Simulated scan of single mutants.
Amino acid sequence: MAEEMKHLIEQIQKEGIEKANTEADSIISLAKEKAAKIVADAEAKAQESLKQAEIESAAFADRSVKTLEQAARDLLITVGQGCEKVVTETLGKEVDTALSGDLLQKMIADVITQSGNNATVTVSEADKSALATYCSSLASSSGKSVELVSDNEVLSGFKVVFEGKSVSLDYTGEAVADALAAYLRPELAKIVSGIAREQISN
């Protein structure tokens, strides 16, 4: 009887241990599966975060480049406008200085001679006094009437209107400077742009 009891107890212990081992294996397997899923989810999330960071980084870099390009364009425009202002002001002063004395007399004579018509020449008050004798002599030599008048709006150079014609010519310092500046603007823009490209490439 004792032998049977001993055998029965051993059998129960054996079955209990086997059951416990089976349950333990099941728990370990389930734990491994959960751990593997957690690791896989974490890796997927990390990859998604990395991908999003790369997209945002690329977008930021692109915005930065565009901002720099716009700043460079704005700087070139500002520099170009500054250069244009300096050139225009200098040009205006040089033209005003040039449109006096012998050159002014020669220009008036050329215009009157080539037109072959009576004309009214408008100059500044200061130039009217200086040109009165010359225009009188020009009228005598050309056989045409040359009326000399002054206008406070004319600072240098002259305007001329021909009798019987609806044509007036403007050789004032302002008009000549504007015409020269209009010619210089695209050339000035090329120079500034060329210098900028050279600096960027270096």
Rank of each mutant, 00 (worst) to 15 (best):
K14E: 15
I17T: 10
I17R: 15
E18A: 06
A20T: 06
N21D: 12
E23D: 15
A24T: 12
A24I: 10
A24L: 15
I27S: 12
I27E: 15
L30K: 09
L30D: 08
A35I: 03
I38V: 11
V39F: 08
E48H: 06
S49D: 14
K51G: 02
K51E: 12
E54Y: 11
A58R: 13
T67Y: 09
T67W: 08
L68G: 08
D74T: 03
I77W: 05
T78R: 14
C83H: 12
C83E: 14
E84C: 04
K85E: 09
T88W: 06
E89M: 08
T90L: 05
T90H: 14
K93A: 07
V95M: 07
A98G: 01
S100L: 01
G101S: 04
D102W: 04
L104A: 01
A109C: 04
D110Q: 13
I112K: 11
I112A: 11
T113F: 07
T120S: 11
V121Q: 07
T122M: 04
A130F: 01
L131N: 04
T133G: 09
L138I: 02
K144Q: 10
N152W: 06
L155P: 02
F158Y: 10
S166C: 02
S168L: 01
T172M: 01
G173I: 00
D178T: 09
A179V: 01
L180R: 05
A181I: 01
A181L: 02
Y183S: 09
K190Q: 14
V192W: 06
G194H: 08
G194E: 04
I195W: 12
I195K: 10
A196F: 04
I200N: 03
S201Y: 06
